[in-house]
Design a protein around this nucleic acid. Structure first.
Lengths: 197, 197
DNA sequence: TTCACTATACGACACGTTGTAAATTTAGTC
DNA sequence: GACTAAATTTACAACGTGTCGTATAGTGAA
């Protein structure tokens, strides 16, 4: 797609301005308050120009999400090529992912951890966090591993949500741990479930 | 608050109409498309009346989230009174929670699992789900438990996110498992981490 | 029943946002 | 330096927002 036709630098410039402006605005206000007006003004482009690139703001978000996924894929591909460990989520891969996120933390923080319309999930998360946190105080020990009866899909729901959630929380408190440390911690937690079959 | 002053039935009626209309609309369209106009029309009340109850739509969402949390608190309080097991999240409590959600699944599905502005989290979740899912296919066994070195806060991030995520996924595929079964599965996964100290 | 109270309905207003259309200017390409 | 495409400018109609008075009708108490 990109071999013969190099994209007009003006297009790249405009899109970059729009995306930067969007991140800026999202740091300052809730997403519903971001109008095409404001966005164009902040990006120092004409409002009409916005419509030459995106259908509307949700469309712009879609495109940005596509880009994000592409970026992450690139990071992951690099890691999987290099190491070929038997582990489910190998350490290199996870560390690379977390480092990538840390590098672009301004973006990820605002995008992944921005509130509103995540309110409900947020509120519920807060409640359960307290619940689990309280419980951790007063608990006993029991070591046990028989997850032969656990549905694969449930285990997948469980652990992917755990990963994302861990990352989001980490971002929200401004990354007090290094990617390496967090990855190790995560893998320790993760390993406990990684024994099916 | 509610002992002497009973609330005007008209107020209750209007709010109920608004909330029902909101859920209906959220089933039909993205949240950004829900205007006060549309909402009032669907609720068969006058648009101006909306502003007698809520500042704007985000404000209405806040209030609805408050109500949700209150409801859940009621469910949890009941469960914790009845049983006093040593487990971190006891089975009764979890089952009750899941049953409550299942009972009001129309509400919870639309509220917790509705897309847009969760796009990014969604997309990332999809990616990681595939990753973990692929990995589950070709993996070995290793049993191991030494999480003495795991930070409490990280463990809390991890497990609360896992719980919410499991619930959201369960809702999105229209609850193919009973609350009881899901709770058991979850507790099995959870128990593995519940061995600190 | 009557009556005061107050929630809701109605019509109207100023204002901002949206999406599109046209003509024009500006910048990149070869 | 001429051709091409992107960005600007101005304009417009449609819609959404938030806030007025004022009129209507449901509510709870005397």
């Amino acid at each position: 797609m990109d071999k013969t036709t190099r994209t007009d630098p003006r297009i790249l410039r405009t899109r970059q301005l729009l995306r930067d402006a969007f991140i800026e605005l999202l740091e300052e206000m809730e997403i519903e308050k971001i109008s095409v007006n404001r966005l164009a003004e902040r990006a120092t482009i004409n409002r009409v120009t916005f419509y030459l690139h995106y259908k509307d703001i949700p469309d712009m978000l879609d495109k940005m999400a596509d880009d994000m996924i592409d970026d992450i894929h690139r990071v992951l591909d690099q890691s999987t090529v290099k190491s070929d460990s038997p582990e489910l989520i190998n350490s290199t891969l996870l560390v690379n992912l977390l480092e990538h996120i840390a590098e672009h933390s301004k973006f990820y923080k605002v995008i992944l951890a921005s509130h509103r319309t995540t309110i409900f999930t947020d509120r519920l998360l807060r409640l359960l966090t307290k619940l689990i946190s309280d419980g951790i105080e007063k608990r006993g020990n029991s070591s046990f591993v028989t997850k032969n009866n656990i549905q694969k899909d449930i285990a997948v729901w469980y652990s992917s949500a755990a990963l994302i959630g861990t990352i989001v929380s980490w971002l929200r408190v401004d990354m007090p741990y290094t990617p390496m440390f967090l990855a190790k911690q995560f893998l320790m937690l993760r390993k406990l479930e990684d024994n099916t079959e």
